[in-house]
Design a protein around this nucleic acid. Structure first.
Lengths: 215, 215, 215, 215
DNA sequence: GATGAATGAGATTTCATTCAT
DNA sequence: AATGAATGAAATCTCATTCAT
């Protein structure tokens, strides 16, 4: 007891905090999965707790309300997602069209293969209490920013044609969020091909014609 | 009035059935309104009953469960929607691009102005009891068909370029279903302009460049 | 209109009354069937109405409450039943043991073959509103009286041995009321044999040994 | 106290489980009491909750539906009942007729004095969901077995005469299940005498004449 | 940190009963 | 005679939330 308290609490995230962090991650990931898959109302805290093999009470130890848990889930998911996109090498070199294409492809890939319905949480403008509103918006912005930068660059360089960058991005995200629903039943190559097809289709939103399309 | 009553009672639904039909329509329309505006979970039967100024019990006189009522509401909503699209004169004459544009514009307009949450009901694969499953799928198909016909015609005539008709339509519907979330806060002219902008953007999915775009 | 009203209402049950009577019989029989089979609470007026292919409202035209309908059902059933037993020739001639045996056999036969669960209505001391209590009791008494007379005669003549006539009759009725549950799954000969077996067993309650029993 | 805590925690259910078990017993006992006294439909969860001085919601913490609670109640009731019969010393020594008589007397006594409506729950073939069906049947079998053993022994030793063991047991149980209805209004000595009378009467089913009967 | 227990508000559903037509 | 419509009370069930331990 005394030994542990001797460790200066401010020095660095101690073992304890790290463990807490990991636990939270676990909860948040599971929650994201469930909410992403079935939506806000259709998932009860009981469901989340069951999946984690803990009790509802425990969830309240980490989160003070359902809304907060959902928000955290969205946030975590969003951050990880954005980080992966930002870490994508192919998104940083070569012609802008290729870079955007790589970005879209990866984004759809993650959605389809890993978080089948998570994107719905970003899209649906649930009536969050004002407190959560801000966090979610910020998230969305950061996530969007990466796409936006590329699109703007493409427009500036004449490589892309758009009506409005905003509108284009919104349509792009809307479509990407639905891809899991369309590709869920496919597997292996077929799924890869489907992802590719959606990527091509979405590139048309910035005026980039597919290499081999039915015209 | 007299002309109508001249029709023999056995030839057509009698007065009573017609009245019942009208009542059902009233209920279903109200329900469609509410579910279309706020979604499945956010609307209770109490809400529906209140709006109709009847008791919950009465709803059960006509529908044997919430699901059945919602399905009927979706069906009505879908039928009315499709009918309005089909009745659109601009969708039947002129160059195929103009026709598709008119169709998309109208579709978005209805979604944004009248049923902000309705398209979610179609999109989200709610776990309906198998019975309802079929009705909803049929609806979706019919609704989609109208768009599909135009796109296929455009592709055949060389006016459109697409990767795949299926993929294109899916992206188009996905984006359209989100428009209410984006335009809800706008009013009057601003909203009209936004609808126009989305329409233009979506036309790019079939390879039709906007007339005045930032390139 | 005038013609019909010309018939003196008091003269005799006119066509109208007879028809009404028949309708009531129909309702009451159906109700007895259902209540007998599933019990008071488990049967709703909707169920009764459905089976009769009329509406609940119609039932209220003839009966002013659920309780009244059930009471009538019991009464009708009981009367018919008693009448059939009283009309049984074999119950009126020969040695008293044979007469009682015939009576019991017939009673079980009717229960098993025609009113699979009606007897439960007599037995279960459901909390009837006090008003109906009396009528039901009277019925039960009359029905019971026929058996009682025979048992008393047998006891007087030394043919039967019982602890108490009351107790004996109660046990007999209790057992008879359960026979449908036990014989329902049998058909044809097997059922006949089962009925016979129960009859033999119940005769033991009055001290009459079965002709061929395992001792 | 110390002795009990000395038992290693893994050897037996821990304190928590035991407490939970006790709570469940409390609920189930109360429920058994009520359902046993008034029947399935006549008892609402509100009634059970009120009697326990908790809320309905709490019941759902332990049981996932009314049916499950009732089934548990029946099970508990049945087990306790059977255990009491099995623990009856008089049922294990002396002539078989005396043993059966003691058994029947005790059974009727419990029914009349403690669970006036419980036997109906066993008898009435309520349409339980299949899950519960099995548990109840098993119960009934175990309960019946004890009587059956004695009857068979009596038959084998020539002490009893029956048509068929099955039929005899069925009639016996049917009659016993009705005794509460007949004795409910009696108290004290009168009730004791009634129980005795029924016992004597039922012994006749196995061919054992009452010591002092009107012949 | 975590859990079991409990709560209470609200949701869906059922049903006897009434009533205008 | 009969019906369709409506009601309202009560029942079953769900779930976010709290709290003592």
């Amino acid at each position: 007891m005394s030994a542990e308290e001797a460790v200066p609490a401010t020095a660095a995230p101690g073992r304890v905090e790290r463990k807490r962090g990991r636990r939270i991650q676990e909860i948040v990931t599971t929650a994201a999965d469930l909410f992403g898959a079935r939506g806000y109302d259709a998932v009860s805290l009981e469901d989340v707790a069951d999946r984690l093999d803990v009790t509802k009470g425990s969830l309240y130890y980490y989160f003070s309300s359902k809304d907060e848990l959902v928000t955290a889930a969205i946030e975590t998911l969003g951050n990880e997602w954005t980080a992966r996109l930002e870490a994508l090498p192919a998104a940083h070199e070569g012609p802008v069209a290729d870079r955007l294409r790589a970005l879209v492809r990866e984004h759809i890939g993650i959605a389809v293969r890993e978080y089948p319905a998570a994107l719905r949480l970003f899209l649906v403008p649930q009536e969050w209490p004002a407190a959560q509103q801000a966090r979610i918006k910020a998230l969305r912005r950061r996530h969007d920013q990466f796409f936006r930068t590329l699109v703007e660059e493409g427009v500036a360089s004449g490589a892309f044609t758009v009506t409005t960058v905003d509108t284009t991005l919104q349509c792009m995200h809307a479509a990407m969020s639905q891809t899991p629903g369309w590709c869920a039943h496919l597997t292996g190559r077929a799924q890869d091909r489907a992802v590719e097809e959606f990527t091509d289709t979405l590139m048309m939103l910035v005026g980039v014609a597919p290499t081999s399309a039915s015209s």
